[in-house]
């Protein structure tokens, strides 16, 4: 529900980077999103056109790299995949785990075009 606010923050960061590199257009924006970030990739994609209108990223393509949830067990030290509502160890079942991946909400890379 807050994905538009996230998109606005992306555009603000990307615009700053484009200005820094004296680029005129942003061609592609690569993101890394994990299921535990609280951001829904599909909602982000639908909010993006609203946020990018009239900016250097108006024609940019949004590429979302969805990351899996992985945990490491604090007890048996195994690493396993997990689901958002069940972050327990996939090997011994212990709930005391550390999240290795799945909470990401990152601007990974931007591709810029200096002259169109």
């Amino acid at each position: 529900m807050h994905e538009l606010a996230v998109c606005q923050s992306i555009i603000e960061q990307v615009s700053r980077i484009a200005a820094e590199y004296q680029a005129q257009f942003v061609e592609k924006i690569h993101l890394q999103i994990g299921p535990l970030s609280g951001v829904e990739p599909e909602l982000l994609e639908s909010a993006f056109p609203i946020a990018c209108a009239n900016t250097a990223a108006a024609k940019a393509i949004l590429v979302i790299n969805k990351l899996p949830i992985r945990v490491r067990c604090d007890t048996c030290r195994s690493e396993s995949e997990a689901s958002a509502s069940r972050l327990v160890c996939g090997v011994c079942g212990d709930w005391q785990t550390t999240l290795l991946s799945g909470g990401e909400m990152l601007l990974e890379r931007v591709e810029l075009l200096a002259e169109h």
Binding site: V6, E12, Q13, R16, A18, E27, V39, M105, L112
Partner: peptide, 28 residues
Amino acid sequence: LIEIKGRLSVTPGDRMAIDVLQDLLREN
């Protein structure tokens, strides 16, 4: 944040890919 429009200077050049790895809510 949505009122900011990056002021870009037009310079000839090629495509650039910039690795960033910043949190999406960096400003917040």
